[in-house]
């Protein structure tokens, strides 16, 4: 389904390798979590997989249903089914949230050779999905992420995810900056999208998100690699003992 194979990548501007041979395999319908200390390469992995500029791939593959995403443009990767929920969702002044969503949905449909949704069809779907995430009509009309609270921004990311119906979702520290209630709402939104086929990769620093989005597998990442994988109990271990013990253990 989704597989990262021996991925090595560096910053384009400085000769510094961040990912140093990362391996990861997520089956259809599975939820995996990645935890790891700051600077271990978690976010870099999500950027390299989705095609953000500023990185150079030195080696490796990122496969989605057998196709190498690294050979594609960022929008092709999205249409292939990869979604990244941003840690810091970007503001786009003057562009209505609804316009943005519809443009994105139809761009992907077009690239996949499907019919574009007309205004009425789109509106019906978006209203349904927004309601579940407690996103009101006003938020749909406002410019993308402009003046949104931290919680609104993250809910908006989940709404985009719900509308785009990706195969693999990477959530980059989606819990950062959220209070407990907002986090629950976001987690519920994600859980509602678990359908036995869609896969998730949840990047987080904290065990608490994993109480709400329960992972099948937990990976610990350090210095550009996965150093340990296990069940949900591994997250608890990190919560109790920190990363240091784990890292020493591996070395």
């Amino acid at each position: 389904m989704f597989e990262i194979k021996n991925l090595k990548a560096s910053l384009a501007d400085e000769d510094k390798q961040i990912l140093k041979g990362m391996n990861l395999k997520i089956g259809a319908g599975e939820v995996h979590a990645i935890m790891g200390p700051n600077g271990s390469g978690k976010s870099t992995m999500s950027y390299v997989a989705s095609g953000k500029g500023g990185y150079v791939v030195d080696e490796g593959e990122v496969l989605l249903d057998g196709a190498n995403l690294l050979d594609m443009e960022p929008d092709e990767r999205a249409a292939a089914g990869l979604f990244l929920a941003f840690q810091y969702p970007v503001e786009i002044p003057g562009v209505g949230n609804m316009t943005f969503l519809r443009t994105a949905v139809n761009a992907q449909r077009k690239m996949r050779g499907e019919d574009e949704l007309n205004a009425a069809q789109f509106l019906k779907i978006v209203r349904e999905k927004a309601k579940a995430l407690k996103i009101d009509a006003d938020m749909l009309k406002r410019p993308v992420n402009v003046g949104f609270s931290g919680g609104e921004k993250k809910r908006n990311e989940i709404l985009q995810m719900a509308m785009l119906e990706p195969k693999v979702c990477i959530l980059d520290e989606t819990d950062s900056g959220l209070d407990v209630d907002a986090m629950k709402l976001v987690a519920e939104g994600v859980n509602a999208l678990r359908d036995g086929k869609r896969s998730f990769l949840v990047i987080t620093h904290y065990q608490r998100l994993l109480d709400h989005i329960v992972p099948d597998v937990v990976h610990i990442m350090a210095d550009g690699k996965i150093i340990k994988s296990g069940g949900p109990e591994l997250a608890l271990e990190v919560e109790n003992n920190g990363y240091e013990g784990l890292m020493n253990e591996v070395v």
């Binding site: 095609g51 953000k52 929008d75 999205a78 503001e91 786009i92 994105a104 985009q160 785009l164």
Partner: peptide
């Protein structure tokens, strides 16, 4: 670039 990448990750050319 952040705005552009955000749009492209959502599927826009």
């Amino acid at each position: 670039d952040e705005q552009l990448f955000y749009c492209r990750q959502r599927g826009m050319g």
